[in-house]
Design a protein around this nucleic acid. Structure first.
Lengths: 342, 342
DNA sequence: CTGAAAGCGCTTACAG
DNA sequence: CTGAAAGCGCTTACAG
């Protein structure tokens, strides 16, 4: 079954491809093509089940109606929710999206960017891994719409959408302090990325403002691809010997860390929040049905995704705006459950 | 910054596009082009940062190296893990993937299929919603590689990869029975799809084989887009009045149901497994750190994803095989934790 | 060994 | 109002 093309329809009716193209693109009125012919063209197109070849259109017009998305891992619900929203918002504007998971690996993201360039995507939404500055810089230079999400590079002038991580960590830590916790640890991931750095800064600032000491040994930076054992080890180090508790609360910088952490804490026979209080970034289902439902910093993921697409579409529609850089910071909210005590 | 094309390289060196194309496609040897010229072409290509225009290649060759993926919802970790594996395996073979979430809505999947057709994807991996039989049939007719995952339509001859749902539900129910539970409910989703139907059949068969009555009022089919309230209501109906327990165990057919269900059960003040035992399909993180870690039917998601891509690639490489339909059924395993008692 | 030419399916000045 | 023609960037017979 050969696919039908524009010229099939043209031949069928004894008219030119030009005319058919006009009609099918809704420019019938504009070129004052008679209603009668318009109707016929539409009929035949339907009858022959005409599907425009977007590849051909893309080659001709230079626009593919495709957005390239690079995130760390689509299997992680954090990025899943983000990706879902991006897909949906893009579809509203007639755009498709190619998904890429970089695993926070700059080698992978580099290849993925090259692939997306070759695919002639109209725009990029990227959650850049560390050490990908040069990739982002050269993308900026290419003048194709680009927006960074979740994190960004302060030294690169580029659209980005993220969350006030400093403020979020500050408030979460403060919440712990207000409930009487004094020895508060921070388990985070060694991504060397602003978002994570700001979280740790916010945590420290909250301690300082409460005249609590900042003990660097209570800050554990784990590798991104940590497994349960890494987290378990970190927690053992933090907890110390029984009867001589080094720590009475932990701020987890990601839900992956938090979920593994809670598993370890429980496995060690410790109770949340009585033995140790817990607060975490992100709000996965797991935290709702957890042994002790977890107090979390909730990020407006859907808004991040939606806004990212809108920034891209806006630049595509108004290419003159491409130099008006948008740096958007959204607010988080603290959802208080039971894991911090009362 | 204009992108460099084949002819830019050709002009640069005073040779023909043909030659450049041959060299860049690794056919230098085949056409016995001198090593010297090959080297120069490669050099210039690198220097000019040549990126082949895949859109143009696609138009010319009819192959886009793109796979279209339709699942219910990429934000659901079940599909997230599947999608991740598909993306990764596809990348290994040089394929990109366009992600579409259908929300189990046949209208959406219809539009998405049309979009993917227009995008000239080389193959489809689809988790088809109910009432999408006609869409799948017409795709089969188009002779473009297609594989159904997670569920399929028994009456349509088509590649599919799924899991032995009957067996899985049978074993899960049996596990409950072996632990002494007799009044076992089944909360599932009204998808009218083989996978879900088989789960309920397996559940019933296990009851029958144990000479337990099958009580249709203990089978609750909720809408796909259920919210917490739907699940809470179902559970209230199942549990009945205090002191007069209608049910002592529940088999959840999906983790979304299970997570909501456990939340409701806990909110009602019931203890798992003492007041009510729980077993669920799928193995999200939530179940590991749950109040009572949940016994689950674990599906080999990565294998499903990987195999799906391989079936597509295989057909693409050996177009003659397209009529050798592959119907693959994988095994699940029961991961026993604490939610069923002992 | 290398090049000129056709053509994939579109869109869009241009001409009448 | 409508059509012939060029061209997007490739690949690939075909010719020499």
């Amino acid at each position: 079954m050969k696919k039908t093309s524009l010229s099939d329809i043209a031949k069928h009716l004894g008219v030119s491809k030009t005319l058919v193209s006009f009609v099918l693109n809704g420019k019938g009125k504009e070129f004052r093509i008679s209603d009668e012919i318009c109707k016929k063209v539409l009929e035949v197109a339907k009858e022959l089940n005409y599907q425009p070849n977007r590849i051909a259109q893309g080659l001709r017009t230079g626009k593919t109606n495709t957005i390239g998305l690079i995130i760390a891992d689509i299997a992680n619900p954090f990025f899943g929710i983000l990706g879902r929203e991006i897909e949906q918002e893009a579809a509203r504007f007639g755009y498709r999206v190619i998904f890429c998971s970089s695993d926070e690996n700059p080698e992978k993201s580099k290849q993925q960017i090259a692939m997306l360039q070759q695919s002639q995507v109209d725009g990029y939404i990227i959650s850049p891994p560390k050490k990908s500055e040069d990739q982002i810089r050269s993308l900026v230079k290419s003048h194709i719409p680009l927006v960074l999400i979740d994190r960004y590079f302060p030294e690169i002038e580029c659209n980005h959408i993220s969350v006030d991580n400093f403020d979020a960590a500050y408030k979460a830590t403060n919440h712990l302090i207000a409930l009487g916790h004094k020895k508060i640890a921070n388990i985070t991931v060694n991504l060397d990325l602003v978002n994570m750095i700001e979280r740790t800064e916010g945590y420290k600032k909250a301690l300082l403002d409460a005249s609590l000491p900042v003990d660097e040994s209570l800050i554990k930076e784990l590798p991104f691809s940590h497994d349960n054992k890494d987290v378990a080890r970190a927690i053992k180090e933090l907890v110390g010997k029984p009867g001589n508790k080094k720590v009475d609360a932990i701020l987890f910088a990601t839900s992956k860390l938090g979920i593994n952490g809670i598993e370890s804490i429980t496995a060690m026979g410790l109770k949340i929040p009585d033995d140790i209080a817990v607060v975490s970034f992100d709000n996965p289902d797991a935290y709702k049905i957890c042994i002790s439902p977890v107090t979390v910093v909730n990020q407006p993921l859907k808004e991040i995704g939606k806004t990212a697409v809108q920034v891209i579409i806006n630049e595509l529609k108004h290419p003159d705006n491409i130099h008006k850089i948008q740096k958007i910071t959204l607010k988080t909210d603290l959802i208080i459950r039971k894991s911090c005590g009362s």
